[in-house]
Each structure stands twice: as C-alpha cells, then as structure tokens.
Design a protein around this nucleic acid. Structure first.
Lengths: 228, 228
DNA sequence: ACAAAAGTGTTGTCTGTACACCCATGC
DNA sequence: GCATGGGTGTACAGACAACACTTTTGT
C-alpha cells in the first residue's frame, strides 16, 4: 500500500451518500438498512469503502451506480467525518457526499432492493453512527447550492411547472415563497424554456410546463446568479 | 486497525494546510520545502498524516501547532484529494484545510524553521503533487467565506484601520473597491469599535484604529450578512 | 506650499418584497 | 355556477454603485 511512509497509521476510507429526491410534494432522503455487521439491519446512509485504485468521487459514483443503475448523477463532496471510534467496526474515516436525483422512474427500483426507502427529511429515523449529523450538513449545503444554482433542475423531472419548482424551493428552505415574486425571478434569469404543453394533473386550468434551457444557462453570469 | 472490515483496502490519510496570511499589503501563502523523501526539498504545503487516535481536524490543528506554536487558529476543511497515484510515496488521500493567521508576531518564527516562506499568492512556485490545485480551491473558499463573514478579522492584527481591511478585501477579490462604499457597509454592520487611537505609519494625517466588536457580531443577523 | 492619505454625502438605479384579482377548466 | 389552482402588475423601501472635494500634517 505505502512504499515510503512505513511508520504511518493506515485506516479505511469510506463514502456515505446523502441522496436527496423530490416526489413532487416533499423533499426526501434515501436510506437503507445496513446489510452487514456491525449494526446490521439499522437505518443508514448508502455507502461503500474506497478501493485501492479509486478516487473518492469514483467511489461515490460506484456506490450510486450499484444502487440505481444511473450514471451522471449530480454529486458534491460535503466533508470528512473522522472521530476515532465513530465506527464500531474499526478505524474508518468517512467522506460524506450529497447527491440529487430525479425520483419517479427509479423509485420502484430503489425500494425493491436491500430495504431502501425514501424518508421525508423532517421525519428521519435514528441512523447509525454520525449519519444524522451528515444529513444536517447536507441540508445546509443543499441550501447553499440551491441559492446559487438552479438546483431544482437536478431534482425535478425534465418537464416541470413553476409551481413544482417553487414547491421544491419551499421545501428546501422550509418557508413559504410568494409565487409572483418567485416566477418573476426565475423567469428573469432566462434559464427556462416555456413549452406549449400543459400539466393538468394538479389543476383544472392546467399549468405550463418548462424545460431547462442549457443555452441560456451557459450565457448566464454565474457570479451574479442569486436565486435566494 | 480494523476489527471487522478485513477485506477492505487500507490507505494513509493526510492533511495539507493552505495557510493564508496578510502582511498589511499583500495576501500571502505559507509554503515549506519538503523535509523527507519522496520529493524532498521541493516546495509544498504544510501537512502531516492522520494518526490512529486522531480526527482529521485534530491533525490539522497539530500540524499548525507544531509549526507555529499557536492554538485556536481559524481553520476550515476544504475537500479531499484522492486520485490514485497522486503521491509517489504510496496510496495517500489528503484532506486540504485552509487556515487564516495573523502574520507579524510569528513571521520570523516560521521563516526560521524548515525553510518555510511566505509567498505572494499571485507568484507561487511549482508545488509538489496537486498542491497548486489545492491553493486555487482554497482561494475560492476564502472568497466565499469573506463574503459572508468578517474574514479580515482573522487575518489582521487586533487593531487595524479601515484602509487595511479594505486593502485585504481588494486582495482577496482581486479588484479595487470604493473606499466610501466599503466603509459605509462595514460600519453599518456594527461589528467594529472605533478607538481613540490613530495609526500614523502610513499617512501624515493618521487614520483611526478599530477593533472587532464581538458583542456586535453576536447580535448580527448572520443570514443577512453579506459583505460582498 | 505641497504631497499623501484620510474622511465624508448625495443621487440615481436596481432589487426585493408585499400585496389582490381575474382566468380557465372540470365537476 | 362554483371550486381549484394558474397566472399576472404595481408601488414602496432598502441596497448598491458611482462619483469629488476638503482635512490633516510631515516635509
């Protein structure tokens, strides 16, 4: 493992993923029941160990791929959790990652495997080790990101209504937002493209669907982007 | 090391510190010449390995204490650098930390030890491994932090003038700032206390010294704090 | 008297926020 | 015809950016 640094202390490095999803109504977190000892059967984030020939982000991608079959999931490193003794199974430092995925198409797939389940993030169970703390950090980071990026677009389906987007932001920030002001602000950024299609599932009148405008996003001045 | 996870791959975990300082004129980074093989003698960030019974932040604090004799240095985790092969000495994942310290009193101490030296952050030498990249990340993070915290106060001496504070921010953001607007904004936050003392080193007229007002800072609404 | 940095106010523009009514449709 | 969510505009307040002259004092 180490050619030179023979007198140093080796340890195991793991990745734990806080996976956020949005079911159109509430912000959710995907949890699993640990499949191995110690703490087998308890609720836990999804994770895995970093292998010899793998970067930490590759580990995170692998863990998510093994679970969801999806590549190219949006992911971001949060921070290390490294208290000695945090893992009863040994000296393990864990790097927390947060990930944003579109639910819906994949929902069944998840739930059918390994006891995975979506939890409303206001009603989380007790998790193993420091995983509850990781989720709190992740929520802070999600708020930061959503303020300066159109984070909704990673959580929503390809076509979505402004109400859905607003509802998502209300969930993330846990406060109501004025729909007129919200629409005006989002639309003024010119990163959405209005379709000639309406979503009629939630209202009699029907509301217009939008898609993310990648071109408009590229032209946007990222530094002055501030949605919240 | 590991009681349970016997089939996983162990590795070494290290911490590298990006140490920012401000000499009253330019923003600086502290570098050292590596004292051991491999890459001995080349310019490098200050770092150390995480020990068996140590959290990552404890390692960062230890590294800084061994070098500076200072405790309670402001520090923040940046991110992991984990490409396999990044360190020719073995499989080492490094956690980058950035730290803000007051130069001046400690300057001589640093420089006299182990070939440490302050570098203007616009004139950095070629560093070992991915350390140049770490510094670029650190600068981004410093800008983020300075926008939402009075970051100057960790880099400046206890008593300072508004010109010094503004000069620091101009360095961090690499752009000129209007002194009237800057003063008004900083003073409106009520986190500075004006002294009846003047600093006359830099001007004939002399400029008032200020100290950080901890009380005012506690009362401040942190969410609406936005200096940049 | 002059050079060098300190200190100080006003104005116009922009951004954010609060707020209420009509519209289209399915039942 | 009525209930439901969708869509739209205005007005006020606060924040921000641009801008220039006077003060102090060491030489």
């Amino acid at each position: 493992m180490s050619k030179r640094y023979k007198s140093e202390d080796p340890l195991l490095l793991a990745v734990d993923c806080i996976i956020f999803g949005f079911d159109g109504n509430r912000l959710k977190v995907l949890l699993t029941q640990r499949a191995f000892e110690p703490l087998k059967g308890q609720w836990s984030l999804l994770g895995g160990f970093v292998k010899e020939r793998e970067s930490v982000s590759q580990t995170a991608n692998r863990v998510l791929y093994e679970l969801t079959g999806m590549h190219h999931i949006y992911m971001e490193e949060l921070s290390c959790f490294s208290e000695p003794g945090r893992d009863p199974g040994g000296r393990v430092v864990s790097v927390a990652y947060f990930a944003l995925i579109r639910t819906g198409a994949y929902d069944d797939l998840f739930v059918s495997r390994r006891g995975c389940q979506w939890f409303d993030f206001t009603e989380l169970p007790e998790l193993v080790m420091d995983h509850n703390e990781m989720i709190q950090h992740a929520l802070q980071k999600l708020r930061l990101r959503a303020a300066s990026h159109p984070a909704g677009l990673e959580l929503l389906p390809e076509k979505f209504t402004l109400s859905q987007l607003r509802l998502l932001y209300e969930n993330i920030y846990d406060r109501p937002m004025d729909k007129r002001n919200f629409s005006r602000k989002v639309l003024s950024m010119k990163i959405l493209h209005k379709l000639n299609e309406k979503e009629t599932a939630n209202s009699r009148k029907g509301s217009y669907l939008y898609v993310f405008d990648k071109q408009g996003y590229r032209l946007l001045d990222k530094d002055s982007f501030r949605l919240m």
